Amino acid sequence: QTVHVKGVQYHFPNPEEAVKFALKVAKDLGGRVEFHGDEIHVE
Protein backbone atom coordinates (compact mmCIF):
# COMPACT_ATOMS: atom_id res chain seq x y z
CA GLN A 1 0.00 0.00 0.00
CA THR A 2 1.44 3.35 -1.01
CA VAL A 3 0.62 6.69 0.55
CA HIS A 4 1.48 9.81 -1.45
CA VAL A 5 1.99 13.00 0.52
CA LYS A 6 3.01 16.09 -1.47
CA GLY A 7 5.07 14.08 -3.96
CA VAL A 8 6.67 11.81 -1.35
CA GLN A 9 5.79 8.12 -1.30
CA TYR A 10 5.49 6.08 1.88
CA HIS A 11 5.15 2.30 1.58
CA PHE A 12 3.24 0.20 4.10
CA PRO A 13 2.99 -3.60 4.01
CA ASN A 14 -0.24 -3.36 5.99
CA PRO A 15 -3.13 -1.43 4.35
CA GLU A 16 -4.61 -0.62 7.77
CA GLU A 17 -1.38 1.12 8.82
CA ALA A 18 -1.36 3.06 5.55
CA VAL A 19 -4.89 4.33 6.12
CA LYS A 20 -4.13 5.34 9.72
CA PHE A 21 -1.01 7.19 8.58
CA ALA A 22 -2.84 8.95 5.75
CA LEU A 23 -5.66 10.08 8.04
CA LYS A 24 -3.21 11.38 10.65
CA VAL A 25 -1.18 13.30 8.05
CA ALA A 26 -4.32 14.75 6.47
CA LYS A 27 -5.50 15.90 9.89
CA ASP A 28 -2.10 17.45 10.71
CA LEU A 29 -1.85 19.21 7.35
CA GLY A 30 -5.51 20.12 7.11
CA GLY A 31 -5.77 18.13 3.89
CA ARG A 32 -8.02 15.37 2.67
CA VAL A 33 -7.50 11.70 1.90
CA GLU A 34 -8.29 10.29 -1.54
CA PHE A 35 -8.25 6.63 -2.47
CA HIS A 36 -7.07 5.65 -5.94
CA GLY A 37 -7.09 1.87 -6.22
CA ASP A 38 -4.02 0.63 -4.33
CA GLU A 39 -2.80 4.14 -3.67
CA ILE A 40 -3.81 6.65 -1.05
CA HIS A 41 -3.21 10.33 -1.73
CA VAL A 42 -3.20 13.09 0.86
CA GLU A 43 -4.11 16.33 -0.92
Rank of each mutant, 00 (worst) to 15 (best):
G7I: 03
N14T: 14
A26I: 05
E17R: 05
E16Q: 11
V8I: 12
K6V: 06
G37E: 07
E43D: 08
H11F: 13
G30T: 04
F12W: 03
I40T: 02
K27T: 09
K27P: 01
K27E: 11
V5F: 10
K24D: 08
K27A: 13
P13K: 13
H36Y: 13
D38S: 12
N14A: 05
N14H: 06
A22T: 00
K6E: 10
P15D: 07
P15V: 14
V19Y: 15
T2P: 03
Q9P: 10
V42A: 02
A18Q: 01
P13S: 14
A22Q: 00
V19D: 03
Y10G: 00
F21I: 02
D38M: 11
Q1G: 09
G30Q: 08
F12I: 02
V5I: 12
D28Y: 13
H36I: 13
Y10H: 05
P15A: 13
E43S: 12
G37S: 06
F35E: 03
F12Q: 00
V19S: 05
Q9T: 14
A22P: 00
E16P: 04
G37D: 08
H41F: 14
P13W: 10
K20V: 08
H41A: 04
Y10M: 03
A22G: 02
N14R: 06
A18R: 00
N14Q: 05
V42L: 03
P15I: 15
Q9L: 13
K27L: 11
G30E: 06
E16G: 08
V8Q: 10
V42K: 01
L29K: 05
G30V: 04
V5P: 00
V42S: 01
Q1H: 14
E34D: 07
H11M: 09
E17A: 11
H36E: 06
V8T: 09
E34R: 14
E43I: 15
Q9I: 15
V19W: 15
F35H: 05
E16M: 10
G37H: 08
V5D: 01
V19Q: 08
D38H: 11
I40Q: 01
D28H: 12
V33C: 08
F21C: 05
F12D: 00
A18H: 01
D28F: 12
R32T: 11
H41R: 10
V5H: 05
A18L: 02
H4Q: 07
V5Y: 10
Q1E: 04
K6Y: 13
H4E: 05
V8N: 08
R32N: 06
V33S: 02
L29N: 06
L23D: 07
G31H: 04
V42Q: 01
H41T: 07
V5G: 00
P15G: 09
L29F: 10
L29Y: 09
H4C: 14
D28N: 10
V3E: 00
H4L: 13
A18D: 00
K24A: 14
V19N: 06
F35P: 02
A26R: 02
P15S: 13
D28P: 03
G30N: 11
V42Y: 02
